[in-house]
């Protein structure tokens, strides 16, 4: 009889793992709480570093998933998981499934920028997040401020909800720096005359071509970089945003009026990740992501036998890393299921 793998979360990691596991010869059920596959990727327009359309990647995983004929349950949330005969019994929506292994790929949420109240998200209309900007790109590259005018000056604030003890997230979300650079260039593409400023603490361009993007943004697009953490934003009567920052390289405080302020929101474990973690009593990292069995040697297993993790439920990741991680998890699951037959 075919072994059955139950996957929770149909984002990039879950969908990719599903089709790979079917190829390996397992029975796969994928539960997704939304009505479509792809998770947060649906919110992005283009991806760094090549600015390829996110839709291309979505098509790829969707096609693979359909071709694999894995069983997909949409609009389905997990209410309970219990142990049963060495495997697990999962209460998914109205269904009850048994599985020999579970893969958790419940992903991340973006940081709720309202918590960082001093930046004014949800208070001032012209303060938006990187996700909101991405939506503007998807809706036909139209960037307007609240007065329906094209902004003349746009500021990007790095590390919103990342590297910040005061909101409880002391870690770096990895992808926001390069995303800011990508978005800054896209803004310049759409509004060539606009001034774009990035306010950063450190620019963490860790990927192979990320530094090139940074360079391109300076060279080709004239994006400006100011080293300093924005302390607060205030609203002028005309709706423009006044930000306060220290230009740490000049050693003096600086104030600047911008027409649109974009907050580069970081990664936090998604509500689903936290919930499943609690349900199964999984070990968590100090950052409240799901903790792998071994940080180097086994990053796909958990403290629970037969429960595996993949994607951004265990740490912030790029799309490329998420794919690699999902595939790594499938190998680990295969090893586990075939080992248990002997």
């Amino acid at each position: 009889m075919k072994k059955h793998v139950f996957i929770i979360g149909g984002g990039v990691a879950g969908a990719e793992a599903a089709s790979q596991l079917v190829k390996m010869g397992f029975d796969v059920t994928l539960a997704e709480k939304e009505t479509q596959i792809g998770g947060k990727l649906n919110q992005w327009d283009r991806l760094f570093p090549s600015k390829r359309k996110a839709a291309e990647v979505l098509d790829f995983i969707n096609k693979n998933l359909v071709d694999s004929k894995a069983r997909v349950l949409f609009n389905t949330e997990i209410s309970k998981i219990s142990k049963q005969n060495g495997g697990y019994k999962i209460y998914a929506g109205i269904e009850e499934c048994t599985a020999d292994a579970i893969l958790i790929s419940t992903g991340y949420d973006v940081f709720n920028a309202r918590i960082k109240e001093e930046y004014g998200y949800g208070i001032y209309e012209n303060v938006i997040t990187s996700v909101d900007l991405e939506e503007m790109f998807r809706n036909g590259n139209k960037i307007f401020n609240s007065n329906k005018e094209e902004p003349k000056r746009i500021g990007f604030v790095h590390c919103v909800g990342s590297r910040d003890e005061k909101v409880g997230n002391h870690y770096c979300s990895q992808v926001c720096c390069v995303t800011a650079v990508k978005q800054a260039m896209e803004v310049k593409e759409i509004l060539p005359r606009a001034e774009v400023y990035c306010f950063y603490m450190d620019l963490r361009m860790f990927g192979l071509q990320f530094e090139d993007l940074y360079r391109e943004s300076q060279e080709k697009w004239g994006v400006n970089f100011i080293r300093g953490r924005v302390s607060e934003a205030a609203e002028n009567i005309d709706g423009t945003i006044l930000i306060k920052v220290e230009d740490t390289l000049a050693g003096r405080p600086l104030k600047m009026k911008v027409d649109l302020l974009v907050l580069m929101v970081g990664f936090v474990p998604s509500a689903g990740t936290t919930e499943i973690g609690k349900m199964l009593n999984l070990d968590l990292t100090p950052e409240n992501f799901l903790k792998p069995a071994d940080e180097h040697l086994d990053t796909s297993s958990t403290n629970l036998k037969g429960v595996f993790i993949a994607g951004t439920c265990k740490s912030p990741k790029t799309i490329a890393d998420t794919f690699a991680d999902a595939r790594a998890a499938t190998l680990k699951i295969k090893e586990f299921l075939e080992g248990s037959e002997k």
């Binding site: 109240e117 208070i123 001032y124 934003a233 609203e235």
Partner: peptide
């Protein structure tokens, strides 16, 4: 209060 603009607003 300048750091909690929602109160100000």
């Amino acid at each position: 209060t300048h750091l909690t603009p929602s109160i100000e607003k």
